[in-house]
């Protein structure tokens, strides 16, 4: 084959791969839509928000408690993990001595790679009993928030570090030449300059938090209710799908696909926002 032919062949292989990946996304969404269409058409979308409770085998399909559960664990984890993740990146890049920074960076990467079920195991065996001793029963919104915080912390820390790395050195030198302290430089110049990258990291961490199933399922208690306090058990949408999919039939099964569709929608909104932010259209 001549070089130009090889070039063209490679081009087609890459095109085909890209098309396949794009097709998978479309197919999954289409699959969710098709599977949930029956119950959506039969009951109407409003029933999922207005029914009195989640008793799908008796025809009651309220998702709000679980939707709220998903939102609360996500928001809680993001609120805790964002300052910790950004602080970790600032430490790594501006305060830690070089060898320590390298070691610390590797540890964060390992943290990002730990399987979620391991986090769940640790939560179940250590965190839940601790919370239970303090405020029974133990499996709770708080436990889920803390486990999720640990899980998305490395995501936010790694993205923050990448965002800080992109801040031009001339800003830092310029700030030093003006007699600004290191903290003033970080607060007033570096963080604003890295803002859109930091925001992208937070949104991706948030996406991970919304979608996380196993670790949360193991520590959240899985009671379908609107929590009255941090110590009440909850059940987020993801855990619900995992718990009931094995035996659900008919409308119940379709209703689980509706919750899948809702989760998918939330993630699409997040990714879209992240894209806009990184292009600098928002806050940038």
């Amino acid at each position: 084959m001549s070089p130009s032919h090889r070039d063209r062949a490679l081009g087609w292989v890459l095109r085909a791969t890209a098309a396949l990946v794009a097709a998978i996304v479309v197919l999954i969404v289409a699959f969710l839509v098709v599977e949930s269409a029956g119950v959506l058409r039969k009951l109407g979308p409003l029933r999922f928000l207005t029914d009195p409770s989640w008793h799908p085998t008796s025809g009651s399909f309220d998702l709000t408690a679980m939707l709220l559960g998903s939102l609360l664990v996500t928001v809680g984890a993001v609120v805790l993990a964002t300052p910790a993740g950004v602080a970790s990146a600032l430490f790594c890049r501006y305060y830690a001595p070089a060898p320590l920074a390298k070691l610390y960076g590797r540890m964060i990467e390992v943290l990002a790679g730990i399987p979620s079920v391991i986090y769940g195991m640790w939560g179940l065996m250590v965190l839940v009993p601790l919370i239970g001793k303090w405020q029974p029963p133990g499996p709770s919104l708080l436990a889920a928030v803390l486990i999720l915080t640990l899980m998305i912390l490395p995501t936010i820390a790694l993205f923050s570090d990448a965002a800080l790395a992109k801040v031009p050195d001339r800003y830092v030198r310029g700030a030093a030449a003006l007699g600004l302290t290191r903290w003033a430089t970080l607060r007033g110049v570096v963080l604003p300059a890295a803002r859109s990258g930091l925001f992208t990291g937070v949104l991706l961490g948030m996406g991970r938090a919304i979608g996380e199933t196993m670790a949360v399922l193991m520590v959240c208690g899985n009671v379908v209710q609107t929590p009255g306090s941090l110590f009440d058990p909850i059940r987020p949408l993801t855990a619900n799908i995992a718990l009931e999919m094995g035996y659900a039939l008919g409308d119940h099964r379709s209703a689980l696909f509706v919750s899948g569709l809702v989760l998918m929608g939330m993630v699409v909104v997040l990714v879209g926002t992240a894209e806009l932010v990184s292009r600098g259209r928002l806050h940038g």
């Binding site: 031009p168 001339r170 800003y171 030198r173 310029g174 700030a175 030093a176 030449a177 003006l178 007699g179 600004l180 302290t181 007033g188 110049v189 604003p192 300059a193």
Partner: peptide
């Protein structure tokens, strides 16, 4: 901090903050 307040510096490439 005091030194750099008294001795200002201008760089080759303009570096206003963002």
């Amino acid at each position: 901090v005091g030194l750099r307040r008294r001795v200002g510096m201008i760089f080759q490439k303009p570096n206003p903050f963002p």
